[in-house]
Each structure stands twice: as C-alpha cells, then as structure tokens.
C-alpha cells in the first residue's frame, strides 16, 4: 500500500480501486427519480437482506478463489444442509421447536458443509484433483443425494427455527448482524493472520509457497472448509427465510452471482487476489442491479438482458480504470 494520505486520500484510493462503486451510485441515482420507493425503509431492508445472503456465499467462495481454486458445489451443499436440518427438526416431534433442537439442527447443517468442504480440500490438496471438476461432481452427487432423500418433497420447519432469519436484535434483523460479524471476521483472517498470508501465497503459486514453507495441504483444506461452512450458513438462512427445507432452495445461477460478485470486486479467478471490501462492493452491485430492475418492473427478458449489459459495463469500467492507473 502507498503512504497514508489521510481520510480523503483513502476515499480517493478506494474509489479508484473499485470503479464499481461509481456504477452502483450511478445506477441508484438513475432509478431514484423514477421509483422513489426504492429508498423506502421496507425496500432498503429487502436490499440489505439480499446483500447479506449473497455476501455469505461470496465470502466463502472468495477464500477458495484466492487459492486459485473454485467451488461450484455451493448450491448442492445448501440443498443437502437444508434437507438435513429440516428433516432432523421434523423427525424429533418431542423436541420440535425447542431451542435445543434448533441449535442441534443448525450444528448438523454446519457439519454438512464442513464435511463436504473437507472432502473437497482433501481431494484438491492431497489427491491433486482439479478443483473445478471435484466441486462440479459434488454439485451433482451432493445435490442428487438431497433430491433422492426427499424425492423432491418439501419439509416444513418449526416457527422457532424461522426466527433465525426473521428475529430482530435492536431493531435490526438477526441475519444482518450475523453476516456483518462474518465479514469482519473474514477481513481479519485475510489481512491480519498467518492463515490469510498463506492463502494468498498458495494462490500466487504453489512452488514459491512450498519454498517459503507454507503448509499447502492444510491451507487449501481450510479454504474449502470455509467455503462449505459459508454455504451451510446460507442454507440456514434460506431455509428459515422460506419456511422450507427443500433440495431446490436455489437455482445453480446463484453460483454465477456469487463468483461474479467476487470477480467484479477485484478477486482473480487465477488466485492470489481479493479483499473483503472489494467483494462487498461487488455483492452490493449485483444485489442492487437485481433490486433496481425489479423496482422498474420491466419485462422479464429486458431484466435479464440489462443485467448482462450492466455486468459488462462494470468490467469495461474496471478495464479502463486499470489502463488509466497504469498510464499514470
């Protein structure tokens, strides 16, 4: 990083590093006069919650992306975790809805993600299998197990569990607190711990990482377990939010959204690059685009086309910015 230039300098740097902020602001300003309701508290809350959901997934994904890996299995982990948690709650009729059973269900869901994440990390790090295919295979078989187990039948969840999403603390929805804590934690891990440095080192190149004594295997396993854990947390939220344990909670498209958000926020698919603040900006952008387009109430196909166009615009801006700062 360059020398400290005070607050204004920081802001300038920030805006220069993340042109997507400009784009988000521009998009918001464009829509506000047409649809002032976008600033209503109700919509801002909807937007904040959409950001929170996508951010959880993008954070987990970015840990893997930083190590030059990729995790395509997130939707499948979410499906399996959702089904496991909901059927556990549905099965324990005497415990249904008690805080203990809810806690156990959540722990079980998190364990699903950790276990599958471990399997991925182990396969990539120790069996030297390509991450793309390992996690793509999981997208099929883990998701397949969730569908097979339920035969696509949806499972209701008790009222107590739903509070994980709908509960409020100091007037602010619980998930916003949870995700804020997770983001701060992720930022701390990436920028202030040995593990963070190791993640970046692995992403920069295995040879150099090996030479500098990074325990490559453990680092990669950590990244995939983090990603699995984040997918499980997202599964807890989705399940509570939709009142439903289901193997089809999300479309696989959410993958493109979360990887796209990370990449727009400056994370590289080739590893070694990515910061929480950038990822947050990317997530805000993707969520805002979705919100604005829905607000405008355009036809379905126009929504999809504009979404594509705006993502391209973000990338063009980024390319310009790089060229400009390179010329400077």
């Amino acid at each position: 990083m360059g020398p400290v230039r005070g607050n204004i300098g920081h802001i300038q740097l920030f805006l220069r590093d993340y042109p997507v902020v400009w784009l988000s602001l521009g998009l918001g300003l464009l829509v506000v006069p047409v649809r002032p309701e976008i600033l209503s508290p109700l919509n801002l809350e909807t937007l904040a919650l959409a950001i929170a959901l996508l951010l959880v997934l993008s954070l987990g994904q970015s840990f893997v992306l930083i190590t030059a890996g990729i995790d395509l299995s997130l939707p499948a982990i979410m499906s399996l975790a959702s089904v496991v948690g909901a059927s556990y709650l549905a099965g324990n009729s005497d415990l249904t809805g008690t805080p203990l059973s809810i806690l156990t269900a959540i722990v079980a869901m998190l364990l699903v993600g950790l276990a599958i994440g471990f399997l991925h990390g182990f396969s990539v790090a120790y069996l030297r299998m390509p991450a793309f295919l390992v996690t793509l295979a999981s997208l099929m078989w883990v998701g397949g197990i969730a569908v097979w187990y339920t035969e696509s039948v949806r499972i209701p969840v008790p009222e107590g569990f739903i509070q994980v999403w709908y509960g409020r603390l100091l007037g602010i929805p619980v998930p916003l607190w949870t995700v804020a804590i997770l983001a701060v934690l992720a930022h701390f891990i990436l920028s202030n711990t040995v593990m963070g440095r190791r993640l970046y080192a692995v992403g920069h190149g295995l040879q150099t990482a090996l030479v500098s004594g990074v325990p490559i295997g453990r680092t990669i396993v950590f990244a995939y377990m983090t990603s699995g854990l984040c997918a499980s947390i997202a599964a807890v939220f989705y399940t509570a939010r939709l009142h439903t344990g289901s193997p089809e909670l999300v479309e696989n498209e959410v993958l493109l959204d979360c990887i796209g958000a990370a990449v727009i926020g400056g994370t590289s698919l080739f590893g070694g690059k990515g910061k929480v603040i950038g990822i947050l900006m990317g997530v805000v952008f993707i969520a805002l685009v979705g919100n604005c387009l829905n607000m405008l109430g355009l036809r379905y196909w126009h929504v999809i086309m504009i979404k594509g166009g705006v993502i391209l615009l973000a990338a063009v801006l980024d390319a310009f910015q790089r060229r400009w700062s390179g010329a400077e």
């Binding site: 493109l256 698919l269 594509g308 166009g309 993502i311």
Partner: peptide
Amino acid sequence: FIVTLSMLFV
C-alpha cells in the same frame, strides 16, 4: 469469465 457471464444473460 465476466464477459461470457454477461453474454449468458444478454
């Protein structure tokens, strides 16, 4: 990744 992702939507 980003260019073809946009093309996917467009």
